[in-house]
Design a binder for these strands. Sequence first.
DNA 1: ATTGACAATGAATATATATTCATTTAATAT
DNA 2: ATATTAAATGAATATATATTCATTGTCAAT
Lengths: 191, 191
Amino acid sequence: MKEKDPNKVKAIFEATINLFAKVGLSGLKMSEIAKEASIASGTIYIYFDSKEKLLNELYKDSKQNWEKLISERLVNKQLPLKTRFKAIWEEGLKFRTFEYNKMVFMEQFTNSPFISEDTKVFSNKSIQPIYNILNEGKESLILKDLDNTILLCLVYGLLKEISFYCQSDNLKLTKELIDSTFLLCWDALKA
Amino acid sequence: MKEKDPNKVKAIFEATINLFAKVGLSGLKMSEIAKEASIASGTIYIYFDSKEKLLNELYKDSKQNWEKLISERLVNKQLPLKTRFKAIWEEGLKFRTFEYNKMVFMEQFTNSPFISEDTKVFSNKSIQPIYNILNEGKESLILKDLDNTILLCLVYGLLKEISFYCQSDNLKLTKELIDSTFLLCWDALKA
DNA sequence: ATTGACAATGAATATATATTCATTTAATAT
DNA sequence: ATATTAAATGAATATATATTCATTGTCAAT
């Protein structure tokens, strides 16, 4: 008996993300995904019932990766808040730059007709650690006393834009860049 | 002789943007655009040769609107830099919140298979005013001496995120919000 | 080495959606 | 009023793309 290739799902996911980076969500065709993954178009249907299922599974998988990483990189509570926040900043920036296409796929998929009802209710725990650190910083009067939504806009907005330019090679993700962007972020947030 | 309805193009553009907000770029169907604009699907083809042409025209039109607005709102050079910058911030935030869906359409369209070669070379003068003000601020040692790309990431990233939350009604675009987000932005940028 | 079971293939088919066009409707000129 | 012309319509058609399935290839057990 021939067994299912355990690498095929990953290969299909990667092909889909690579293609997405080139042609966007509206340009994704099953035949092209298959070509990109070097398999026949029919093979995809051994692993996924439909295009919709494939995209929803890819979305859930990407989201889980992201949440897993965030929870793994939580830093020792003994260190000063600024140090811990910088560690999160650095990890976040590296991760988002490295996984740029996955993240953009997730964002666009969220408001596409492909997303199914059960995927919509899928968890989102990824911002909790940053939420916590912002609350702590506000309580100890280190950070500005503004709504978390606003503070997160600054952090996440900067992160998104910087990672975009890194990914497109207009900026290089050096230690210097991490430091100066963190400085911008911190100066904005601090009371 | 019956004349072409001068409002139809605008109606089709608006319908397309509204639909885009609901279903994303991949969900746009000519029949649905027609329904949204309360016309027959064939009517669209009196005004546009094809779906591709329609989307490219919409993109160019949106981009021109944005550039026109930016150039109109340039502020008196006599005022202090911080005042001028705040005026740009306020206008930018209001405009992007108001025209949120247009802006997101533009961003996603740029990397879709619909964009044609001649649309790609279409001008982009919109960031020039902010560029100039950043340079001036750095020369007079008011702002941090960092690459404009980095500074713009902060300004534009915050703008994008805040307008997203305003548009989705999680934040309300009050004077207070404009002031506190500008404060974040300014604290980040100032030397 | 042979066989059974399922994975893989890709041309054929089904389906979704863009586009056309015969017909109807409405505005303007005479 | 009537004729003329082009816009508007939407069912019919063409086209693009998702999905199926008959066939072939490959692995693992005997």
